[in-house]
Nucleic acid binder design. Structure first.
Length: 595
RNA sequence: GGUCCAGUAGCUCAGCUGGAUAGAGCAGCAGCCUUCUAAGCUGCGGGUCACAGGUUCGAAUCCUGUCUGGAUCACCA
């Protein structure tokens, strides 16, 4: 890699010319801005103290040294304190020839090491998936693929929150007002049906609270003593006691939800290596709490509830077991963490969970440390930002959510009508057209979400449909199809461009800049893997596509008269298409052969 | 109130661990299809990087404070 070569030479230069060892952070190399001549730029200000000369002189001395000592550096220019270096044509040609046959360019070598376990999705089985879940699912899946692309083994896991008071609420509402309705009888997805009763519960519950308040009860008391809530609590107790009728109902309704979720997951292209169910793991945390009591890091209050005092760590006291012995969220998470560690002995345990739970994960890590679990530091919370609507946060109970299925339906319609408006559907069979619309609609949606830095809150305005032009998934898909069209034409003409080795002594500006962008692929995958950021891959794919379109517009490929040059451009187009396809795959986006 | 996160063009977002005149897309305006796909390309307009200090050769980026918005501090998950 040329960057490391230059850095190395730069250190050598400073030492030879000025007799000093520069520290690592002073040796910075960046890409030359397009308005200047050159490929890479060294900022020389940090070396002025060593050279005791002005920036121009220093830059010239270093520049001369680099040119004299490296065949790869063919030229340099100095503007103020910036030393712009030109990398030789030979280097770029060599890079090109190496990459052409290498389908694994950019990817890390598979390593035989402990896996990274990535938990994502983790839905509650009382309501359908909405846009917030979509972000979670896409992020989790993509991060897993990117880490894999770095050669690190990955396990994708899902922890389904299938029990608890919130589940009982929808069960109770269905029992009361459901009238025996089923997904079949209402011709509705199971998760949607169950979700309706979750909302219904909340509505009826609020009515009860209001009535109680009107009768003179204070608000807090009313919330806790509304008959519906008491009934839900009773149902939860029955569930925990293994009451057959409640368990039957629970199984039936959860199954409806799973069937519904499967449809949505499948449509989004999301999968898992293992699915954990909270109902099967919720008891396992208790043993660890006992362990903590034994070690004296937790303590019991008079009423029998168990706590951990985190005030020395600047946090509050944390409840771990209720007075009646039932477990809470944190108890379960301690348990599942241990379980997962036992299952995989992972290098990292990554949790893709919204940033509203930052505190929860701080506490979780701290508790595990107090339990002296050596793997506590393996836990990483991939804390992503909320998806907000113009009105603010989405709330399931209040119905202010963008439903995942509906959104994909709408995107599909937009893809269809956009394609039809452009009149590009002529030569497609109905089935091909359908596949294309699916590809484009999901591409637009996934790219829209993944191109944003995971850590940041993002805005979605349902009134404005997601774009299909500009910095979008379809733009990149289009660029891919465009390249494939050219390559197809070459194939059809019986023109064999792949097996030839070409060597050009001169590169056109657009050929060169496209190569320079493609050259970044390995660093992008590395950085995206380190930072768990699909956004870096998305932005890279956009840069590649944009650069190719400029190349495509400025130069001819098939009509190029010089045979060698024609082959070179076809090969360059080939690498570009492959890189686009591979980058997009890491985002879970497919690219079409034609569109 | 404590803690944490954010504030960049009308809108949605980039801007790597401090470097050159802060970049894209959308929206608006003006061009380019007898060159291989115009979901494209080219150009124009649009900025006190919330505000005020500080650190230094240099700050959107680091530090302090202020303002604004969000999250969280549950015997919910």
């Amino acid at each position: 890699m040329i960057e490391t070569t230059i850095i190395h030479l730069l250190r050598q230069a400073i030492f030879e010319i000025y007799g000093q060892e520069p520290s690592e952070d002073l040796l910075q190399l960046q890409k030359t801005r397009p308005e200047f001549q050159g490929d890479y730029t060294i900022v020389v200000f940090p070396f002025l103290k060593m050279s005791r000369k002005n920036p121009e002189q220093t830059a010239n001395e270093i520049g001369n040294y680099l040119m004299d000592n490296s065949p790869e550096i063919t030229d340099f220019n100095v503007i103020k304190g910036f030393l712009n270096l030109s990398v030789s044509n030979e280097y770029w040609m060599r890079f090109f020839t190496n990459v052409l046959p290498d389908n694994t360019f950019g990817f890390g070598k598979p390593q035989d090491i402990a896996p990274v376990v990535i938990e994502y999705s983790s839905p509650n089985t009382n309501k359908p998936l909405h846009l917030g879940h979509v972000r979670n699912n896409l992020l989790g899946w993509s991060v897993a693929e990117i880490v894999k692309a770095n050669g690190i083994p990955v396990k994708k896991v899902n922890l389904v929150n299938d029990r608890g008071i919130h589940i009982c609420k929808s069960m109770l509402a269905w029992q009361k007002w459901g009238d025996g309705s089923t997904p079949e009888s209402t011709r509705q997805k199971g998760d949607k049906l169950v979700g309706e009763y979750y909302v219904r519960f909340d509505q009826e519950y609020k009515k009860e609270i209001n009535t109680l308040i009107e009768n003179g009860m204070d608000a807090d008391k009313a919330k806790n003593s509304a008959p519906l809530l008491l009934e839900a609590k009773l149902m939860l107790k029955k569930w925990e006691d293994g009451d057959q009728e409640v368990r039957e109902l629970w199984k039936k309704m959860n199954q409806w939800v799973y069937t519904g979720f499967d449809v949505t997951y499948h449509r989004m292209g999301i999968d898992f290596d293992k699915i954990y169910y909270e109902s099967e793991t919720y008891l396992s945390g208790k043993a660890l709490v006992e362990e903590g009591l034994g070690k004296g890091v937790f303590y019991k209050k008079e009423d029998g509830s168990v706590w951990c005092d985190l005030t020395p760590d600047g946090l509050d006291e944390k409840l771990l077991l209720r007075a009646d012995g039932t477990s809470v969220y944190m108890t379960q998470d301690i348990g599942t963490a241990q379980l997962r560690y036992d299952d995989y002995h992972p290098d990292k345990l990554v949790y893709v969970v919204g940033n509203e739970q930052n505190y929860h994960f701080d506490v979780l890590k701290l508790l595990l440390k107090k339990l002296r679990k050596p793997w506590a530091d393996a836990i990483e919370h991939l804390s992503y930002g909320m998806v907000e609507l113009p009105q603010g946060k989405m709330k399931s109970r209040e119905g202010t959510v963008v439903d995942a299925d509906d959104l994909m339906d709408e995107m599909y319609q937009t893809a269809k009508s956009t394609t039809e408006t452009l009149g590009k559907f002529d030569h497609f069979s109905e089935k091909e057209a359908h596949e294309l619309y699916k590809m484009l609609s999901l591409g637009a949606l996934k790219y829209f979400i993944l191109k944003v830095d995971p850590k940041k809150t993002m805005m979605f305005n349902p009134a404005e449909s997601i774009d299909f032009t500009g910095n979008t998934g379809p733009f990149i898909q289009y660029t891919h199809a465009r390249i494939k069209s050219v390559l197809r034409k070459a194939d059809e003409a019986g023109f064999n461009y792949l097996d030839q080795v070409v060597d050009l002594s001169q590169l056109d500006e657009k050929e060169r800049s496209l190569l320079v962008v493609l050259h970044d692929f390995p660093q992008v995958i590395k950085l995206a893997g380190d930072q768990f950021s699909p956004a870096l891959v998305a932005n890279f794919a956009y840069d590649v596509a944009k650069e190719f379109n400029q190349f495509y517009h400025a130069l001819v490929i098939l009509k190029e008269e010089n045979e060698t040059r024609k082959i070179f451009r076809l090969q360059l187009a080939f690498i570009t298409a492959r890189t686009l396809q591979q980058s997009m795959r890491l985002l879970g986006i497919e690219v079409p052969e034609r569109m």
